[in-house]
Simulated scan of single mutants.
Amino acid sequence: MNSIRLASWLGLTAVMFISFAAAAAPPKELFWDDLIPEGHEQISNQEAASHDGDDKNWVQPDLDAPVVKALDGKSVSLPGFVVPLEGNSEVITEFLLVPYFGACIHVPPPPPNQIVHVKIKNGVPIDSLYDAITVTGTIKVESHKSELAQTGYTMKAVGVAPFEL
């Protein structure tokens, strides 16, 4: 009987240790290419963008761009630039994270698999939209559509920090 209790205790201890180690694992560090499935030929109209007012220059390309389904539900960190959607003069609570400054505002939006819709519960101050940040949280493979763009991913952020090389 004692050996059964010992085996049960060791088994429970091992499960708790593995669970703790998994919970303590740092988020996976992503970069924008990681959001594009391997082998997909990405369409971008950023290079051809102009500000002459022609509507075709503001059309979001490749609305059916595929996403990386294996990322769904993963804890990740991703650098990028903020396009504010919700908040006040002190903090923002909802924004688009994009790979380059001016996306969705000064040039056409990138394809949906290159935009992440981010929500952060208590908001975060953003000092300058010109500065890159790194967002950490749980990424979901799900679309979100706003006036500015359609996204291929959403994220519940738990942290935002200045981007560091």
Score class of each variant (00 low, 15 high):
48 A>T: 10
60 Q>Y: 03
103 A>N: 07
5 R>H: 08
94 E>Y: 05
57 N>W: 14
20 F>D: 09
43 I>Q: 11
112 P>F: 06
127 D>S: 13
63 L>D: 07
141 V>W: 06
44 S>A: 06
126 I>S: 04
97 L>R: 07
123 G>P: 11
157 A>K: 01
104 C>D: 06
165 L>Q: 04
55 D>C: 01
51 H>W: 11
50 S>K: 15
139 I>M: 07
160 V>R: 00
156 K>V: 05
144 H>S: 12
28 K>I: 10
120 I>V: 02
146 S>R: 09
110 P>G: 03
28 K>N: 04
105 I>E: 14
92 I>S: 00
47 E>M: 14
3 S>D: 15
127 D>P: 02
5 R>T: 08
72 D>F: 06
33 D>R: 12
6 L>H: 08
146 S>V: 10
129 L>K: 08
152 G>V: 07
11 G>F: 12
33 D>G: 12
107 V>K: 13
146 S>H: 05
118 V>Y: 12
129 L>R: 07
36 I>E: 06
158 V>T: 13
162 P>F: 01
24 A>G: 03
94 E>M: 04
87 G>T: 09
100 Y>V: 14
42 Q>F: 08
8 S>N: 10
155 M>D: 08
76 V>I: 11
67 V>Q: 06
74 K>E: 12
31 F>T: 11
71 L>C: 03
141 V>I: 09
43 I>S: 10
107 V>D: 09
116 V>Y: 04
144 H>E: 15
61 P>T: 04
43 I>W: 06
131 D>I: 06
7 A>Y: 03
50 S>V: 11
107 V>A: 12
44 S>R: 13
75 S>R: 14
101 F>D: 09
8 S>P: 00
24 A>D: 14
85 L>G: 07
164 E>M: 15
158 V>H: 00
56 K>M: 05
142 E>Y: 02
86 E>A: 15
13 T>D: 06
41 E>K: 13
19 S>C: 14
57 N>S: 13
92 I>C: 00
37 P>I: 03
86 E>P: 04
6 L>N: 11
97 L>I: 04
44 S>E: 14
135 V>I: 08
17 F>G: 12
37 P>Q: 03
41 E>F: 05
66 P>F: 02
34 D>R: 10
31 F>D: 12
2 N>H: 14
129 L>T: 13
123 G>R: 08
75 S>G: 00
39 G>F: 08
88 N>I: 10
108 P>M: 07
82 V>Q: 03
141 V>K: 10
